[in-house]
């Protein structure tokens, strides 16, 4: 019998705790597939965040380090500086990276730290139960923006890839992808692979912003959530390559 589909080696054989329809599982799988394909499982060190993916260390079968909320890029920096030949990645959500940990990610990028960050943007705080995130869309209702995000009160959502892309430094790479349909999942995997290769080739900092769903806290079915991502998030968060240009 021929095996045509199997679990990636770098993913543990356990059940994810994620809610039905949440796309964290897809993103985990993409990362694990990339680690397998690049044959770097034995030299990869992952940094888990605080948020829904806090238990990521139980899911990836690589050495893992659990960071404090927002501090994953600093922890990853410490690891990478000790083991420059290893591959170090951090997995972060939007509250973690774009709110409490904004300083850490900006400076890791500014230093051209040779790490890879997978930034999962689902426009809401999931783990704490659906509060407004720095990436929550204008008008979006959350548990702390009950009448919808009001720009007079809370300002505009932050476009992390564009912001980091404005930092000087060729070799650094920032891309935004989505996982709302098979075609985009394929593109997301390609971007994640390129981000790891960017690190392995010693070029610089790489970040992949992955637009993701949160059906539970958005109050939608999994199918509605995928549609909402496509219709509401894509216009504000355009997909593409935001890497800094040479000589910026």
């Amino acid at each position: 019998m021929k095996v045509i589909f199997e679990k990636p080696k770098s993913l543990e054989d356990v059940t994810f705790h994620y809610c039905p329809g949440c796309t964290h599982g897809i993103i985990h799988r993409l990362i694990a597939e990339v680690i397998d394909e690049l044959e770097i499982q034995e030299k990869t060190i992952g940094v888990a965040p605080v948020g829904c993916a806090v238990l990521a260390y139980d899911y990836f079968d690589v050495d893992m380090h659990e960071a404090a909320h927002g501090r994953a890029p600093a922890v990853a920096t410490g690891i990478k500086r000790v083991h420059p030949k290893n591959v170090v990645f951090a997995y972060q959500g939007d509250g973690d990276l774009a709110s409490i940990g904004m300083a850490e990610v900006v400076h890791a990028a500014a230093r051209g730290e040779k790490i890879t960050i997978i930034f999962v943007n689902n426009a809401i705080y999931g783990m704490t139960g659906g509060q407004m995130a720095p990436t929550t869309l204008v008008g979006q209702v959350t548990n702390t923006s009950p009448t919808g995000r009001d720009v007079e009160h809370s300002g505009y959502p932050i476009r992390v890839s564009e912001m980091l892309g404005s930092l000087v430094g060729p070799g650094n790479s920032m891309k935004r992808v989505s996982v709302h349909d098979p075609k985009h999942i394929g593109q997301a995997k390609k971007a994640i692979k390129e981000a790891f290769i960017n690190q392995i080739e010693g070029k610089g900092f790489s970040l992949v912003e992955v637009l993701s769903t949160c059906p539970t806290n958005w109050g939608k079915t999994p199918v509605e959530a995928l549609k909402w991502l496509e219709e509401k998030m894509l216009p504000y968060y355009p997909l593409g390559d935001f890497s800094p240009k040479e000589g910026v």
Binding site: I45, V47, H65, A67, A68, R71, A74, V75, A76, T77, G78, I79, K80, R81, V82, H83, A103, E104, H107
Partner: peptide, 15 residues
């Protein structure tokens, strides 16, 4: 804050 978390990472990495 970043400094101590870099220490956290480096120490976890065995340094």
């Amino acid at each position: 804050i970043a400094a101590i978390n870099m220490v956290y990472g480096a120490s976890g990495a065995g340094a």
